[in-house]
């Protein structure tokens, strides 16, 4: 849990599939879906497995480590709610799925493709949290 507050202009609207995922963020827990039938791990949450179309899916907790597939530093905001610059990234999680996220507190030297990152959180005004990442200190 951090005191970082997300500049959210539009609140996510959880549905019957994503509700548990958003609830878990209140406890700083990043959930992923695992297929009971074929063990495929996926994110974002869905009503079916994208590998075998199985509909029996369970939640597992992500370790919270991954690597930066790619990133971009946004210099012009999509809405006035966002304060530039900030770093958007695709992070490949250790469990397999790739997610869109944000990287915080990275220097220009640290911010490269394939850098390793670890999970952090940003508070949303509705009590949910947003999973974000920071560069893993090499020491």
């Amino acid at each position: 849990m951090t005191d970082r507050v997300a500049p959210l202009s539009v609140h996510p609207i959880p549905d019957e599939i994503t509700g548990p995922w958003w609830e878990a963020t209140r406890e700083s827990c990043l959930l992923l879906q695992r297929c009971v039938g074929c063990s495929h791990v996926q994110h974002y949450p869905r009503a079916m497995c994208t590998k075998c179309a199985g509909t029996d899916l369970e939640w597992i907790e992500a370790q919270g480590i991954g690597t930066i597939d790619s990133f971009t530093i946004v210099q012009r905001p999509p809405s006035p709610a966002f304060e530039v610059p900030y770093v958007i990234a695709r992070v490949c999680l250790a469990e397999g799925p790739t997610m869109l996220t944000k990287i915080i507190d990275a220097t220009d030297e640290e911010l490269v493709c394939d850098a390793t990152v670890s999970l952090d959180w940003e508070m949303l005004s509705d009590g949910h949290q947003l999973p974000i990442f920071r560069i893993t200190n090499p020491q």
């Binding site: 959210l8 869905r46 971009t72 946004v74 999509p78 997610m99 996220t101 949303l124």
Partner: peptide, 14 residues
């Protein structure tokens, strides 16, 4: 109502 609205838009990608 799309997954992007929940899992991507909150980060503010253009």
């Amino acid at each position: 109502h799309t997954p992007e609205a929940q899992f991507e838009s909150p980060y503010g990608p253009l």
